[in-house]
Simulated assay, not measured.
Amino acid sequence: MSNANAAARRKGPADNPVEPDLVALLGSRICHDLVSPIGAINNGLELLELSGGAGGDEMALIRSSVDAAMARLRFFRVAFGAGGGAAEISAREMREMLEAMYRDTRTKILWRDDTARPRLEMRLACLALNCIEAATPWGAKVEVIRNEAAWVMHVDAKRLKIDALLWQSLGRGDLPADLQGAEVQFGILARESRQLRRPVSVSADETHLSLIV
């Protein structure tokens, strides 16, 4: 790469330095590297199925697990990976991805939006759903609606696990100093929503949670 091209990559509009989002790039790299081996397993299963060598409950379980893993990688790539701009993700793709992710769980996602939306907008939705996962370890019904200004998510469950500090951090609260890796979505959603000037509203009781972002 020439010195001129290298300089152009490091500069944004009006020669303002542009800092890369290393966390997002790391997410993209991890997802990219994992897609290849899991995709190879998927291709092997397809060959077995075409040749008639696949059958039985064991193969069905493997197929279901591979489908769920591929869907979760796609989900993580949207939620944590780099990318944005004019790229859009269709409502159909979101539904298929979420259905495969949660098919064998006690959680059901009802995606009520029918519009293809920018990747950045879908990123907010995926981060929000990932936060909801932390509150629903025993399963739930999650309804996802998009109004003119924000995502609106309603969660109904027999029981919720609410960590008040985590959920308060999505508004004006500070992140817990002992934030765990499994909770990183709260920090990223808080950062993204503030950068986009998208206020987050949360209300919850023992069995219902509403999240607006």
Rank of each mutant, 00 (worst) to 15 (best):
M1I: 13
N3M: 13
N5D: 15
N5M: 15
A8H: 04
R10I: 09
K11W: 09
G12A: 09
N16D: 12
P20S: 13
D21S: 10
V23E: 14
L26D: 13
G27T: 11
C31P: 07
C31K: 06
S36W: 07
I38T: 11
A40Y: 03
A40E: 10
A40N: 07
I41N: 00
E46F: 02
E46M: 07
E46A: 14
S51N: 14
G52C: 14
A54Q: 03
G56W: 12
E58N: 12
M59T: 10
M59V: 14
I62R: 03
R63W: 05
S65M: 08
V66P: 09
A69Y: 03
A69K: 02
M70L: 15
A71H: 08
R72G: 12
R72W: 15
R74D: 13
F76G: 11
A79N: 06
A79Q: 06
G83C: 01
S90R: 04
S90A: 09
M94N: 05
M94E: 06
L98I: 10
E99A: 12
A100V: 06
Y102H: 11
R103K: 09
T105A: 12
K108S: 11
D113Y: 00
D114E: 08
M122A: 06
M122R: 05
L124Y: 02
C126P: 01
I132D: 05
A135M: 04
P137R: 05
W138Q: 11
K141V: 13
V144S: 00
N147L: 01
H154E: 05
A157K: 05
L160H: 04
L160K: 03
K161R: 12
K161V: 13
Q168E: 15
L170K: 03
P176W: 03
P176L: 11
Q180S: 10
V184E: 00
Q185Y: 02
A190I: 05
A190D: 06
E192I: 10
E192H: 01
R194D: 11
R197G: 05
R198D: 00
P199G: 10
S201L: 14
V202A: 09
V202T: 03
V202N: 02
V202M: 11
S203Q: 07
H208E: 07
H208D: 07
S210H: 03
S210G: 05
V213Q: 02
